[in-house]
């Protein structure tokens, strides 16, 4: 499945939603396969599925779905002043998850397997929302003019059928919290007196060093540098030191090298969920700090598998635009019927 072609083929958002729900079902089937044993076929399927899922999640953004592409050359509409539709409610509101083992009841012990509840950004698209990140107040991030221009540019490129490739599309790292928004896979947390370690199936490791100050003169990196301390049963994490290649979300919200965010992680719902309240601060692209909420559910029934990308950079990226200035692959030219 070519995710970009799917997005640009004129399918209605509801149809696309169904496609993605089917992909999610495939993942659930895969979860069943992993329980009964899969052999090498399962391994290859996992690689292929991971590539397909990541590619589709990257290119099928709400920007491409929320509006019909009647006039690709027209300027993007200003964002609605109405509050955006609040994100999909988590299991704490739906009561649908019944873990097979009781959760760890120690308030300040996050060890175990968790799965992000925010896995279907397309649900927002089907409801007509255009915001990439939604704040806890249900509004879009308070972009500065410069930040909004970059965001609109990326949204417009998406609508024109030449989406801008983010780092995930290039198989490069994202900021740690982006995994909470995109990943369909579980993650695990280990913790000691000196470190809280969050590991995702895609190999992403979020290392949170405890009771240490942020070092001076951090070298900018994709994942930045995170330090944390416990305030009672809440882990307060300070992250900074990012390069400027990553986005805050999969849709195009930019950040500068001055990005800093504070994430307050705590157990809720009697230990069945983790809540991540992240306050982003980046004066260049956002007028004021804003807070985004994510949750993850205790899933001791899941195992962490290994996900590896076996694509070259240009596979699945046909027609995309690279912001690093390199030449992207071009779509194959159409040939007339009689042409050799």
């Amino acid at each position: 499945m070519n995710g970009r072609r799917l997005c640009m083929s004129g399918l209605r958002p509801t149809r696309l939603l169904a496609v993605f729900l089917a992909a999610d079902q495939a993942l659930e089937i895969r979860s069943e396969l992993r329980r009964i044993g899969g052999g090498s076929g399962s391994f290859r399927r996992r690689v292929a599925l991971a590539v397909t899922t990541i590619a589709a999640a990257i290119v099928c953004t709400p920007a491409s779905l929320a509006r019909s592409i009647d006039s690709p050359q027209s300027a993007p509409a200003e964002p609605s002043r109405q509050p955006l539709v609040v994100e999909q409610k988590g299991p704490e509101d739906q009561g649908t998850v019944a873990p097979t083992l009781p959760p760890n009841t120690e308030p300040a012990n996050f060890e175990g397997i968790w799965k992000s509840d925010h896995v279907r950004p397309l649900v927002q698209a089907a409801l007509g929302t255009t915001g990439p990140l939604v704040t806890v107040e249900g509004t879009q991030p308070p972009y500065t003019a410069e930040g909004q221009n970059i965001f609109w540019h990326r949204m417009l490129m998406e609508q024109r059928g030449t989406p801008v490739a983010n780092t995930a599309a290039l198989y490069l790292p994202s900021i740690p919290l982006n995994s909470l928004s995109l990943d369909l896979e579980p993650f695990t947390i280990l913790q000691t007196n000196t470190q809280v370690l969050v590991l995702w199936e895609d190999g992403t490791a979020w290392q949170i060093y405890l009771n240490k100050p942020q070092p001076r003169n951090l070298k900018p990196t994709y994942r930045g540098h995170s330090v944390g301390l416990w305030e009672g049963a809440t882990l307060v994490v300070d992250s900074t030191g990012f390069n400027t290649r990553t986005w805050l979300d999969s849709h195009g919200s930019p950040h500068s090298g001055d990005l800093r965010f504070i994430t307050r992680i705590s157990k809720i719902n009697h230990g069945r969920q983790l809540e991540f309240l992240t306050t982003f601060d980046d004066p260049r692209y956002y007028r004021e700090p804003f807070t985004v909420r994510r949750t993850a559910t205790w899933r001791p029934d899941l195992h962490l598998l290994e996900v590896e990308i076996e694509n070259t950079r240009d596979e699945n990226n046909e027609g995309m635009v690279y912001e690093d200035g390199e030449q992207p692959p071009r779509p194959a030219a159409k040939r007339s019927p009689g042409e050799n």
Partner: peptide, 28 residues
């Protein structure tokens, strides 16, 4: 957990004492 610097890979070891139960093949 082994966290490797090379390309941010990791590896988990269960210390429960039981032999590894293989439900999927992988590089690690």
């Amino acid at each position: 957990a082994f966290v490797f610097q090379w390309n941010h890979r990791f590896r988990l070891v269960d210390l429960g004492g039981a032999p590894p139960i293989v439900d999927d093949l992988s590089y690690r």
